[in-house]
């Protein structure tokens, strides 16, 4: 008897996840269209739009574009499949639970990349933001790495909420982390209390790293400290991983 290869299962599982995503316009349209639409609007169409705005928003809308598929794909997707008993059946089957998560992360990375490409194109060709090739690669790297903490948040929601509650809470998390994380408006414009909240959000920390890569001006004289931000992101991610693991273990019984 040949043992089924993990890779083979993972490919099958990823294929199934891609099909599911492609057949769900309510997932695809906001994921792929909204970030670039917002980017075009705020970077080009708004009065006062200029290269500096386009540069700032390239960094922050990249994080925004990745956050959507991560939080919704996992928060809403996992909650729905758990609610209907699908995950229970999979647990009884010889499918390694890691292949399910890995396949979902793969699909998230694919759709996050597809959402990033038009933003990068608009920034590069539309707003003439010229970055050395290495900076573009680093920017893509940090944007795709952003998947990890947001997927962990999505998983925690998906494992602990029913499917209806998951939709509501995912929306709040998504919009809240976007607005308070400074992805739409720079946080230095916020009142001091809100700024304190911002600092505690992974969206803010990731955006700060991206901002330093694209060379956006530091605001209000405070220098950017990307390594400091990266350390905070790492700590937050570890904490979120524990939280997601705990939520996963709890729903199993």
């Amino acid at each position: 008897m040949m043992k089924p290869l993990f890779l083979n299962i993972y490919f099958h599982e990823s294929g199934a996840e891609i099909l599911k995503a492609l057949r769900a316009p309510e997932y695809i349209v906001p994921t792929l269209v909204l970030p670039v639409a917002f980017y075009l609007f705020f970077a080009f169409a708004m009065p006062g739009a200029g290269t500096e705005n386009a540069r700032y928003l390239l960094a922050t809308y990249g994080v925004f574009a990745v956050m959507g598929p991560s939080i919704f794909g996992f928060g809403v997707g996992v909650a729905n499949e758990r609610d209907r008993g699908w995950l229970k059946l999979k647990r009884a089957s010889p499918s390694p639970s890691l292949s399910y998560i890995a396949a979902k992360i793969t699909v998230t990375l694919i759709f996050a990349s597809l959402a990033l490409i038009p933003i990068y194109l608009a920034a590069g060709f539309g707003a003439h933001i010229a970055l050395p090739r290495g900076q573009w690669v680093m920017l893509l790297g940090i944007h795709l790495l952003s998947v990890i903490p947001f997927v962990l948040i999505g998983l925690t929601l998906g494992f602990s909420l029913g499917s209806n509650a998951a939709i509501a809470v995912s929306n709040i998390a998504f919009l809240g982390m976007s607005a308070l994380g400074g992805l739409w408006i720079p946080t230095f414009l916020f009142p001091p209390l809100m700024q304190k909240i911002s600092v505690s959000l992974p969206s803010y920390q990731l955006a700060e790293i991206a901002l330093s890569i694209v060379g956006a001006n530091a605001n209000a004289g405070a220098p950017r400290m990307p390594l400091h931000n990266l350390t905070i992101v790492a700590i937050m991610t570890a904490f979120l991983a524990v939280l997601a693991y705990w939520a996963w273990a709890k729903q199993r019984n």
């Binding site: 599911k20 209907r84 008993g85």
Partner: peptide, 8 residues
Amino acid sequence: DADLPDLL
């Protein structure tokens, strides 16, 4: 009571 994903 295990329902499968709708879209496959």
